[in-house]
Amino acid sequence: MNVIYFAWVRERIGLPQETVQTDAATVNDLIAELCAREDRYAAAFADTSALRVALDQELSSFDAPLAGVREVAFFPPMTGG
């Protein structure tokens, strides 16, 4: 699946998006997999209460299932307007 990062999450991880091969069942499982890879992921995902997630461009939750999802995006709380 395509994983996209925005704002300081993108800066901490060091790339805007990547393709991830995963069998993770939920968003939390995917985060655990990414954090186990490298410190920069652990740094970005240290406090998920400071993060938001969108699944296929719809705001979602961290315990949401990933079955059928093509695009996951992680970002800080939005500051539009």
Binding site: F6, A7, L59, F75, P76, P77, M78, T79, G80, G81
Partner: peptide, 26 residues
């Protein structure tokens, strides 16, 4: 519309000053 655009439209603001760059916190 303004209340929802602030917190539910996926925009992120970064302020660039002489001292560096800071993401605006929600």
């Amino acid at each position: 519309l303004m209340d929802y655009l602030k917190s539910r439209a996926p925009f992120w603001k970064k302020e660039i000053t002489g001292d560096g760059a800071t993401w605006v916190a929600a």
